[in-house]
Design a binder for these strands. Structure first.
Lengths: 248, 248
DNA sequence: GCAGAACATTGACACAGATCAAATCGAGAC
DNA sequence: GTCTCGATTTGATCTGTGTCAATGTTCTGC
């Protein structure tokens, strides 16, 4: 079960967005200065492509606000999303200089970038940055594997419920603090993007959203504003090996 | 396109199997001695479970000979393979002490293990071990994402062709050196395991294997011994964004 | 060589989700 | 307000893969 810890933000970072996931939590003095020197911000509009697969990528980055996706496309146009980047997520591969995926902004997006060369040099001299990056990569590998279970074995309804649950856990306005049960958030994805995430068609996504609404698991206000009426029922529908909390 | 480099063995390691993927290629003197001290071998028979999901795992390891799988199971028994470990592959997560997947030997298996605690200490004092581990983890993440495309968007025939191509590239007796075209190897997986890899049922796997045989893309000698009659046709059938070689 | 078990193939049929098509909704432009 | 266009929903139908069931093959131990 993914710990809330790895999923939650940690906005104690003031000026240094990469601390969103605490890459430099243990950096001090000099090291912070060095990070400051190689960092800059980039903004993209909803729908804009950040980089195309195969392009040279000369920076690594952390999402500050907005949502981006990684996706792969086959020659005939079939598309599969392989990464969903929410605020605090990291993108970029120290040690490789072209990207293997299209990176797209699905909402307006601000990223905090670090020029790659100096970042890599910093990794060599500052071991805990590399260690933190390893942890983050292992977490991503875990979530990729969870995603594989979803793609390979879950039904359409379970896929939708899983996606809503994933987004809710990270994105839900924490204002609504009722431990589980009702959660409110805005979907950062179109039906088509949801379909690309889940390995479905957009029509199936739409039908299953309607079905969950009819079953009173969620309710919709407009197309994007979602209320999860019963989080436990949603988890149930997601087919997750739950036990809800940390019991057992 | 996965480089042959990341896929090929590197058996220049003599006594130190972890060098299979060159974790300690740059280790010398003292460091090698330390690795020697914390290492030991384990053997498993085909079909044996190495560890169950949720168990404590107090070692990290490298596959010396044989094949192992990582898989996830849902409460109702649906199963998805999420990792395939061939010789030279690494398993284990420094920094986390329980496993999230069942690890199973699908053939007789020998692993070279390192006790985790001292291995982690070694990572702290020997940065290049951590760096190499980061590279390996990033490679695994790439292949997990390739796998996600397969699970989410490929047809049954494309899935089978992709799997055969993946195994062939790593496993094929390199004796048969004809650049592409004919390749011979033994499948290390049963039809059911192939199905768990691909998100299919074993019946569909069997039917598609028969179809590829009828179309003269492969031929079978017994159930397990496979000859790829036309590697290009197989790649074609896999729907891979090829261009076959390094042209373009 | 034979019995039994595990593994694999093949067939008939069912159904979840894809495809094709049409209707409806909603946000911005004017 | 209302026009427009993309996003979404809904409907009708088709199809690839799953399911259930029977049969065939290969390997092991005796």
């Amino acid at each position: 079960m993914p710990t809330l810890d790895t999923l939650s933000f940690s906005h104690d970072c003031g000026d240094c967005p990469i601390r969103h996931r605490a890459v430099c939590a243990r950096c001090e003095g000099d090291e912070l200065d060095r990070l400051e020197q190689i960092k800059y911000y980039r903004s993209y509009q909803a729908g804009q492509t950040v980089i195309w697969s195969g392009d040279r990528m000369d920076f690594v980055a952390s999402v500050v606000t907005g949502v981006a996706t990684l996706s792969q496309t086959m020659e005939d146009g079939r598309r599969q999303m392989v990464g969903l980047l929410l605020p605090s997520d990291f993108v970029g591969r120290p040690g490789r200089d072209t990207v293997a995926y299209d990176v797209t902004a699905t909402t307006d997006l601000v990223m905090c970038c670090f020029r790659k060369k100096p970042f890599e040099e910093m990794m060599l001299t500052t071991p805990h940055v590399g260690q933190r990056l390893l942890e983050m990569t292992l977490d991503e590998l875990d979530s990729a594997r969870e995603w594989m279970l979803l793609l390979g074995r879950k039904t359409a309804r379970e896929k939708i419920a899983s996606l809503l649950s994933i987004i809710a856990r990270r994105d839900a306005s924490l204002a609504v603090k009722q431990p589980s049960k009702r959660l409110v958030f805005d979907l950062p994805l179109t039906r088509e993007e949801m379909a690309d995430y889940l390995g479905l068609t957009l029509e199936t996504v739409s039908r299953q959203m309607s079905a969950l609404r009819k079953d009173k698991v969620i309710s919709l206000d407009g197309k994007r504003h979602v209320t999860i009426e019963d989080f436990d029922a949603l988890q149930e529908a997601a087919g997750d090996d739950s036990d809800g909390g940390m019991l057992v």
